[in-house]
Simulated scan of single mutants.
Amino acid sequence: MNIKLSDWHPEDIKAAIRKKGITLADLARDAGMAGNALRLALSLPRAEAERVIAAALDLHPMVIWPSRYHADGRRKQPQPADNYRAARRFGNAESLSHAEAAV
């Protein structure tokens, strides 16, 4: 069986950050980034913003966005075209959510 992990849903990422007592705006400000830079990374590939978010959650960005990374942790270059689709879906019937994968 070929099991593929799905990217975290943007709301799950925001909730995890809020549970740390911070906001995306706080993280962006602390990193010297534009206010919307981290918000954009929730749905579009943005390497630096992904690293900032993942570091705040004590995770590797690959854990949050597996579609953007190879299995060995290297970032995909170039990113798959599906990672830029505006109507991108988060997960599908063949994927496990990050919560299910942790079990």
Rank of each mutant, 00 (worst) to 15 (best):
E11M: 04
S67V: 09
P10K: 02
L57S: 02
G73R: 01
P45M: 07
R51H: 15
A99S: 11
I22T: 14
A16Y: 02
G32V: 01
P78T: 00
H98V: 11
L38N: 00
G35M: 03
K4R: 15
E48C: 03
G21L: 02
L96D: 00
L96V: 08
E100A: 13
D82K: 09
I3Y: 07
D82L: 06
A25F: 08
D26I: 05
R29M: 10
R89S: 11
V103D: 08
L96H: 06
N92A: 06
R51W: 13
T23D: 05
L44R: 14
A56M: 09
L5R: 14
L96Y: 05
S67F: 07
D12H: 10
E100H: 07
K19S: 09
L57M: 04
E50D: 12
L5E: 11
I64A: 08
A31L: 04
R85N: 11
A56G: 08
L38T: 01
L44Q: 10
G32F: 03
I22A: 14
I53K: 00
D26W: 00
E100M: 10
N83E: 13
R85G: 05
P78S: 03
A31C: 04
A41F: 04
A15M: 06
I13L: 05
Q79I: 06
K14M: 15
A49L: 03
V63P: 02
M1E: 13
Y84H: 09
I64D: 03
A71H: 09
G73I: 04
K4A: 10
D12R: 11
I17Q: 01
K20P: 03
L27S: 02
P61Y: 03
L38K: 00
Y69H: 04
M62E: 13
R75H: 01
G73T: 02
L38A: 00
A86F: 08
S6C: 11
Q79P: 00
F90M: 03
A54E: 01
R74H: 14
Q79R: 03
R68I: 15
R85W: 05
L40K: 15
T23P: 01
L40A: 10
R46I: 04
A49N: 01
L38I: 00
L59T: 13
R51D: 14
G91W: 02
S97D: 09
R46Y: 13
R75L: 15
L44T: 07
A81H: 13
A34G: 07
N92K: 05
D26M: 05
N83S: 11
N2F: 15
L5T: 08
Y84I: 14
P10W: 08
M33A: 05
L96Q: 06
R85H: 08
P10V: 08
A25E: 10
A54L: 01
A71M: 08
A15T: 15
Y69D: 03
V52Q: 05
I3S: 07
D82P: 00
A54S: 04
R68T: 09
L42N: 00
A37T: 08
I13Q: 00
S67G: 15
E50H: 05
S95D: 13
A49G: 02
A47P: 12
A31Q: 05
A87K: 14
K20E: 10
M1V: 14
A54G: 01
R74K: 14
D72E: 04
K19V: 07
A25D: 07
E11T: 08
W65T: 06
A56W: 04
P10E: 09
